[in-house]
Design a protein around this nucleic acid. Structure first.
Length: 567
RNA sequence: CGGGGCGUAGCGCAGCUUGGUUAGCGCGCAUGUUUUGGGAACAUGAGGUCGCGAGUUCGAAUCCCGCCGCCCCGACCA
């Protein structure tokens, strides 16, 4: 490709309000442009890299026996009603109507569509297992798109789905996909940490997220330096401190706390610490109220509570509902006298003389103890793990890191096949549910992740495997005939050798070309300049910033060797 | 959805507080001359619904109201 024909509008400056490094560099280097919030155009350079990432994914998926197909982006609403996810995922679904008024969604993920396809086409155990995937744009009405390609409303995703006869089959394909993912990220030059995770709205039991650990990450990851256990904060398992220290009980009493409805205000008013308070949170679980109690300085893990309750929808009660079920306003809820199910975090089991709400305006109860609470209480781990919590496995304290989720493998099991009745007939003629797994990778997000982690003050630095081109050939002075002849000759030789080359033949000053080359970040730069008179060119490593002067006869071999060793 | 910030030429910004010529600067773009290995110099020139709408006023980029869009921070997820 000749640069003079390339559509790659590089920028010297970027909008001041763009924060993330990858976002800035991908914009500046002419890889992407934004249409509206969370929706991007992939320019030729960006699309080349996207294609290279996709090809690596295909290669590794196919190696593990998966088959590529392409499913529709527009889904009839009824299909989503079958799985019930038209309700549970309603916030991210982007819908529209056709001319007849039939409702559709743009696919945010494809479990429904693929399960429908497979259940119609597969009858016998002989047709299983199946492992199918596609690479396609996904559409999600994200609450907050951010960071350029990090979090988009329209993004390229590889999504794969497996259908097996039994758990054993699922385990085999799940492990294969885990292997494939490990290889994919490695080949893309990403250092990825697999962590335990929760299934989220897609459901599923056993799941691993592939995390890129970076301060720019959106998720919190807890890592145990002792045994290597790593998990998303939402499910990280920790050991609860269950020491029961002796402490004399104080007389319980109700005190006036005018205007103090936050933990901080109550603490200031009562001269207490947040860990001496118990906050009582009122939730609506599938329409029924429950109370969850947790230490004042902790955060409730709604995922854990939802699992404990077996609820599909869990949301905080409205002020009106709180008034109805507790008799008091928001900020003064407490367990005494409540007529709704009580759940408490195990951590507060041995707390004594604690502070709780009195279920009336401007009043709290101090020196409360569990013997004062007559209702039944269900104890469970309800809070989020935090840095310093003790690893359940080995007893070492966790450290916390930030991460970006690059991929996810789930064992869906029967969560989709059951509501959608995806069945097959087994050897004995019995009808059985297919067991499913699903496997996703954010393809466009990989580009952002690599850009985020591999760059310097001058621009991007692509690994050979996914660089838009392998070689950036620079004709330093386009008006110098000797230079042009040598550069043309090298260009043609590289093309013949099937090496991906971008040839900067523009009539620009050398400095402009060097700046653009460093910004775009192609790993090998070949500079044809002053040394052309001696029949030599300069080969420069973008990442190491090291150059060598090479005789023209050896240039192609030198480059080929560099490419081979980089791949 | 809550909080904060921003919207003026392709890009980056000033002007707005205190309304008043023809709305300005840098980069980029076009033409010419010189230059030619790290984002050249000079000269000339083109380029604007001041986000949109309604209002106040003799007069609005500037003041008021409404809307839209964008970025950042939190609740949600590849």
């Amino acid at each position: 490709m000749r640069y003079s024909h390339l559509f790659a509008p590089t920028l010297r400056e970027v909008p001041a309000d763009v924060e993330m490094v990858s976002h800035k560099l991908l914009l500046r280097a002419g890889f992407i442009r934004q249409l509206v919030t969370g929706v991007y155009e992939f320019l030729p350079l960006g699309y080349r890299t996207l294609t290279k990432v996709s090809d690596i994914i295909r290669d590794e998926m196919n190696k593990q026996g998966a088959q590529e197909l392409l499913l529709p982006a527009m889904h009839p609403k009824e299909l989503w009603a079958e799985s019930g996810r038209d309700v549970t995922m309603s916030e991210v679904l982007i819908g529209f109507k056709d001319r007849k008024g039939t409702e559709y969604y743009l696919g945010p993920t494809h479990e429904e569509v693929i399960t429908n396809l497979v259940r119609k086409s597969v009858q016998s155990y002989r047709d299983l297992p199946l492992n199918l995937y596609q690479i396609q744009m996904k559409f999600r009405d994200e609450a907050r798109p951010r960071g350029g390609l990090i979090r988009c409303r329209e993004f390229l995703m590889k999504d794969g789905y497996s259908f097996d006869r039994d758990e054993e089959g699922l385990n085999i394909v799940y492990n294969k996909m885990f292997e494939a993912y490990t290889s994919i990220f490695k080949r893309c030059g990403l250092d990825i940490t697999p962590v335990d995770a929760s299934g989220g709205a897609i459901g599923g039991k056993e799941t691993k997220e592939f995390m890129l650990l970076t301060d720019a990450g959106e998720d919190s990851i807890l890592i145990c330096p002792g045994c290597g256990y790593a998990a998303n904060q939402e499910i990280a398992d920790f050991r609860v401190d269950d020491t029961d220290e002796f402490m004399p009980f104080q007389p319980i009493r109700t005190v006036s706390t005018p205007g103090a409805h936050t933990i901080e205000q109550v603490c200031n008013f009562l001269k207490a610490y947040p860990y001496q308070l118990i906050k009582t949170l009122i939730y609506m679980a599938d329409g029924k109220p429950v109370a969850a109690m947790i230490r004042g300085d902790r955060e409730l893990n709604e995922g854990r509570l939802r699992v404990l309750l077996g609820a599909s929808a869990l949301e905080m009660a409205t002020p009106e509902q709180i008034l109805e079920y507790t008799g008091g306003p928001v900020g003064f809820s407490g367990p005494i006298g409540l007529n709704i199910p009580l759940y408490a975090d195990e951590e507060i089991r041995y707390l004594k003389n604690f502070v709780i709400g009195a279920n009336e305006l401007d009043a709290h109860i101090i020196n409360a103890n569990w013997s004062d609470i007559k209702s039944d209480i269900t104890w469970s781990k309800l809070r989020f793990a935090v840095e310093g919590d003790i690893c359940e496995v080995c007893g070492e304290p966790f450290i916390e890191k930030r991460g970006i989720e690059m991929g996810h493998v789930f064992k869906l099991k029967y969560s989709i096949s059951e509501p959608m009745n995806a069945v097959y007939t087994d050897e004995e003629g019995n009808e059985k549910l297919m067991i499913m797994g699903c496997y996703g990778i954010g393809v466009s997000r990989i580009i952002a992740a690599v850009a985020e982690t591999s760059n310097d003050a001058n621009g991007l630095i692509w690994p050979m495997s996914i660089a838009p081109f392998q070689v950036h050939l620079i004709l330093a002075n386009a008006t110098d005939e000797v230079q042009r002849l040598l550069a043309d000759s090298i260009y043609n030789q590289l093309l013949s050798a099937k090496i991906d080359v971008l040839y900067d033949d523009r009539e620009e000053r050398a400095g402009v070309k060097f700046k653009d080359a460093d910004l775009i970040g192609i790993p090998i730069q070949v500079i044809v300049g002053k040394t052309a008179a001696d029949g030599k060119a300069e080969i420069r490593d973008r990442a190491a910033k090291l150059s060598e002067i090479v005789e023209k006869m050896q240039i192609i071999d030198n480059i080929s060797n560099r490419i081979q060793s980089a791949l």
